[in-house]
Design a protein around this nucleic acid. Structure first.
Lengths: 188, 188
DNA sequence: ACGTTTGATGACAGTGACTGACATCGATCG
DNA sequence: CGATCGATGTCAGTCACTGTCATCAAACGT
């Protein structure tokens, strides 16, 4: 046994999500989060750069998964097919985390600062994917455009997945969105 | 003549852009911006909600222009063609503001908080355009996907316009990006 | 076994963004 | 000419976030 309770980060993240859900993001102070986790405010900031970041612990995992899937697509796959492989992987990741995803989405959706943070995480993901596509030989601006278009599919698909009641899987919804994107762009 | 110097907002915006350029966003305090504009910190916050917002005075103008162009596209235009009309209008808006756009972009690009704010402004623009497309009879998720894809074209085109040395117009670059997007999505 | 080092945490003071409440005062209205 | 208004100033206060030093259990080395 250590001198302190283990899983400090998770305890902070759990306390934060609870408090943000119960009383709202703005009405929660970092000191309260720390106190619920049995820690001090200073320790919170040793684990998370700021009050928003505590909701985005999974970003790195998602990025790694996405990038691996895109990089691992067959060499013969088109850019958009590689992107689709990434979307499938992301869909699988969230498959059994829907309740958590919904609660987290509700908190983020209710606050502009948190939406900003969410957007920059997706933009960072897009940048990483564009780089991976370039590694696959895709030229600019095709790489960035493919990544950004894929993020659009992810965003719209994710919101629909959260909004409905489990009728369709996230992967299925993203496939539909990708198909619809092909329709509206009415490509080559 | 009023009791105070006129154009308070513009003076604050000018002072802020100057100081953010000279010393960086983080190294500038709101009190310094206010002082350079001949005002107090409290007055700054009466005109701008926060330290970031002072760089985004033009967002509303861009949104109005964009939405008007999309709404005004011929009824026979496809969603993506209506979107293209909005991109053209935006391209025209920036045409004679390139030096200002570059300076502002450099400031925003150098700071994560400012990039976050930029992203939420573009997301808000996307939402407004999606609504306009729905008013034109476009169903979901096609409306949101078209708007998001259009934003991707705007983003990538804009960055290239800032990066190069005036060889091509913003409108021309966005047309190229839109064409490239059609290629990569390899649509219907 | 025992002194040393390490690493996570606590304690505390400080900065700066942002807010609420109240005072000021030239311009405008009746 | 007095009442009102609107933009600003003044000031106190909260809270996010940071730097610095103290603490102390555990792991390590001898």
């Amino acid at each position: 046994m250590g001198r302190w309770e283990p899983n400090t980060r998770q305890r902070l993240a759990k306390a934060a999500l609870e408090l943000y859900s119960e009383r709202g993001y703005e009405q929660t102070t970092v000191a309260e989060i720390a106190r619920r986790a049995g820690l001090t405010e200073r320790t919170f900031f040793r684990h998370y750069a700021d009050k928003r970041e505590v909701l985005f612990d999974g970003s790195e995992e998602l990025r790694a998964l996405f990038v691996t899937a895109v990089a691992g697509a067959p060499g013969s796959a088109t850019p958009i097919d590689a992107m689709a492989a990434g979307l499938e992987a992301a869909g699988d990741l969230f498959h059994d985390r829907r309740p958590f995803a919904r609660q987290r989405y509700a908190v983020i959706d209710a606050n502009a600062e948190l939406r900003e943070r969410e957007l920059i995480k997706l933009a960072s993901l897009s940048t990483a994917i564009a780089e991976t596509l370039r590694d696959r030989g895709v030229e600019e601006p095709a790489a960035s455009l493919t990544a950004e278009a894929g993020m659009a599919v992810f965003k719209v698909g994710f919101e629909r997945w959260i909004a409905e009641n489990g009728e369709r899987t996230l992967s299925a919804l993203m496939r539909e969105c990708l198909s619809e994107l092909r329709n509206v762009t009415g490509g080559a």
